[in-house]
């Protein structure tokens, strides 16, 4: 919001600082886009600002313009920036009720296909992708599935490919796995070693990890299922609309779109072309 002109006479320093920060952020994002090609200009400003301020503290800098200087002249600093603004902390079976609904409502539909392509957009460090792989394995579907797991950040993907997570999280994951309707003992899915939990390697068999940027890249295949949970909340309305277009372009007829619990199709230009199949879990099916 700009109200500098009106308040200049009052020398309202807080308002002025706030505007200056806004200008600095715009310049920073523009510079990053032009130089590195990553487009954060349409990220939701409120949460992006918080993350940028955190980076400022971590880099021990006072002003965003100083951060801009460092990011543009030091690719390592940009890598750190990229990590800080794109990593979304999640867990295996986050929102277990979603996975439960997926098991009951989506799996029966998927059984009717000889071959299923899933796209997990914004997979971060892979926890939810592997959760899906476990679910599909337990339902006897995994062999005919291929999961394309994408993220904008290659470092995060490297981590995801390893399928190694801190051992101390397993207790929590076990609980969530059970709430999600897990059919076995969760400990069957990992081996503990040196304080880490290494996920069963067969889970990786049908997952393809690759870099894809929702803000700048296009559709790359046609899918039966697209899962994109708690990613759109980081985008502003313009970018959300654009990504909904991309999903629509990438989803086959009767394909499934799964969003985060507090997300909706409201900004999708194709809202009327979907029907909810698990409304409170935000699982939709494309009708036309």
């Amino acid at each position: 919001m700009f109200y500098a002109k009106k308040t200049l006479n009052h020398i309202d320093m807080d308002v002025l600082t706030s505007n200056l920060e806004e200008i600095e952020i715009q310049l920073l994002l523009e510079g990053i886009y032009q130089y590195y090609g990553f487009d954060f200009r349409n990220y939701a400003r409120s949460s992006l600002k918080r993350r940028i301020r955190k980076i400022l503290t971590a880099e021990d800098l006072e002003h965003i313009s100083a951060l801009q200087d460092r990011i543009l002249h030091n690719p390592d600093c940009f890598k750190r920036f990229l990590l800080s603004v794109t990593v979304n902390v999640t867990s295996m079976f986050r929102d277990p009720s979603f996975f439960l609904a997926f098991r009951h409502k989506v799996v029966p539909l998927l059984r009717t296909y000889p071959y299923v392509r899933l796209w997990h957009a914004g997979c971060s460090e892979g926890q939810e992708v592997y959760s899906m792989a476990i679910l599909l394995q337990e339902e006897g579907l995994y062999d005919r599935c291929r999961i394309y797991a994408t993220d904008t950040n290659e470092l995060v993907l490297k981590h995801a490919k390893k399928a190694i997570y801190p051992l101390e999280l397993m207790q929590q994951y076990t609980q969530l796995y059970q709430q999600a309707g897990g059919k076995h003992s969760f400990s069957e899915y990992y081996t503990a070693a040196y304080g880490s939990a290494i996920l069963r390697s067969s889970l990786k068999d049908n997952i393809i990890f690759s870099q894809h940027n929702l803000a700048t890249d296009r559709s790359f295949n046609e899918f039966h299922v697209i899962v994109c949970r708690n990613v759109l909340i980081y985008f502003n309305p313009t970018l959300q609309k654009q990504v909904h277009q991309l999903f629509h372009d990438s989803l086959c007829m009767f394909g499934i779109l799964a969003l985060g619990k507090q997300e909706s199709l409201r900004l999708s230009p194709f809202q009327t072309e979907y029907e909810p199949i698990a409304k409170s879990e935000k699982i939709y099916r494309r009708l036309s």
Binding site: M1, A44, R45, S46, S47, R50, R51, N88, V89, T90, N230, I233, Y234, N236, P237, Q262
Partner: peptide
């Protein structure tokens, strides 16, 4: 979820 304010609407985040 964190609740955040944008001009005229709300946004959410799952940041730490």
């Amino acid at each position: 979820y964190h609740l955040l304010v944008e001009p005229g609407y709300f946004a959410l985040s799952v940041d730490e």
